[in-house]
């Protein structure tokens, strides 16, 4: 290296030293602060401590802005629940017991009600004139009496189904079996809700008990209630409990599918059109004697094949017997008279 460049390097070095000195002189206190901050940033304990101070508030703020936090936590929470159950199932079971209890009771009472309805139907016809006719039919066709009763009474048709937003009474969706329906379904939906409120208010019904059915003449309105929405079916005739179970299922599906729309519901019902098929599936009916239409099932007799003897045979039998006995009486009278 030449003397000139060496000198230059030396000068640079000196300048550098001077720069460092200058820097220290000017910003020494700040440098120290930066050093402290750097230490804090790098120390995980300190960072955890800092974060812990704002964590709760941050969660509240974020949760109020959008749903990203819930989505982000979802996989973690699922795993946590899994682990909790693995570790000690009792813990979680105790926690959800208050919810499960009523759910189980409801399920049991529904199935008992279903059973009772069939028995009721059978019993009420057992000793009536109608019942007598049906007993004869049962003997003729070889089918159990209970089945004959159900066959003749289980005639119904779901004419309309409403999906109602419980809090506001607003109509979310409506389907009808035929084109001609009621004039304004929005108003009907409102009034239905008002009636429920009225009953609740007037008869001191407890908060978690809900209106389930209205009966007027030939019509029955069945209402299935979820936390946010209610499904109401306008039925003509005598509907089976299986319809109610189906309505419950469809309601649960709707509540789940539409949970986000329901949370933010501000009057826009267009998104609920996606759930129409659930309502349509409730438009069931069963026709007299023939069997099923739609999704209903009247239990078919699997026992013996039906003997094809019509009621006419019986009537002719009786008439025949009557004529014969008349002839016999006539005959014996003539005989007696002739004998004298």
């Amino acid at each position: 290296m030449t003397e000139a460049s060496e000198k230059k390097q030396g000068m640079h070095g000196a300048l550098d030293d001077e720069l460092v000195n200058l820097r220290t002189l000017l910003v020494s206190p700040e440098q120290q602060e930066i050093a402290v901050l750097k230490e804090r940033l790098n120390d995980p304990d300190i960072r955890a401590e800092e974060l812990s101070r704002v964590l709760a508030e941050a969660i509240v703020i974020r949760a109020s802005k959008d749903k990203k936090l819930a989505q982000a936590l979802l996989p973690t929470i699922e795993l946590t629940i899994k682990d909790s159950v693995k570790k000690d199932p009792k813990f979680l079971a105790d926690a959800i017991f208050p919810v499960i209890g009523p759910a189980i009771r409801k399920a049991i009472s529904e199935s008992i009600r279903s059973m009772v309805q069939s028995i009721n139907e059978t019993m009420s016809y057992a000793f009536s004139w109608q019942g007598l006719k049906w007993r004869i039919e049962s003997i003729q066709t070889g089918r159990p009496f209970a089945e004959i009763v159900l066959l003749h009474t289980l005639i119904y048709s779901v004419e309309q189904v409403f999906l109602v937003h419980r809090e506001t009474g607003l109509l979310l969706q409506h389907v009808a079996a035929t084109e001609e329906g009621i004039k304004d379904v929005d108003m009907v939906s409102g009034m239905l809700t008002a009636i429920q409120d009225f009953v609740h208010d007037s008869f001191g019904v407890s908060e978690n008990q809900v209106l389930q059915s209205l009966n007027v003449g030939d019509y029955t309105i069945w209402v299935e209630q979820g936390p946010q929405v209610a499904l109401a079916a306008v039925i003509r005739g005598n509907p089976p409990e299986s319809l109610r179970a189906h309505m419950e299922e469809e309601l649960e599906k709707i509540e789940f599918e539409q949970r986000y729309c329901l949370q933010d519901f501000k009057g826009d019902v267009a998104p609920f059109a996606l759930s129409r098929h659930h309502l349509e599936s409730c438009l069931m009916q069963a026709k007299r004697g023939i069997g099923e239409a739609g999704k209903t099932t009247i239990p078919a007799s699997t026992a013996k094949p039906a003997r094809k003897r019509s009621a006419h045979d019986l009537i002719w039998l009786i008439i025949g017997a009557g004529i014969i006995s008349l002839l016999l009486i006539l005959g014996s009278v003539i005989f007696q008279v002739a004998g004298k």
Partner: peptide, 16 residues
């Protein structure tokens, strides 16, 4: 759609 009698019976009438 509903007559005014609903106001005297259940206390409300729904219109649109």
């Amino acid at each position: 759609m509903f007559s005014e009698k609903y106001q005297t019976t259940i206390g409300v009438k729904v219109d649109k």
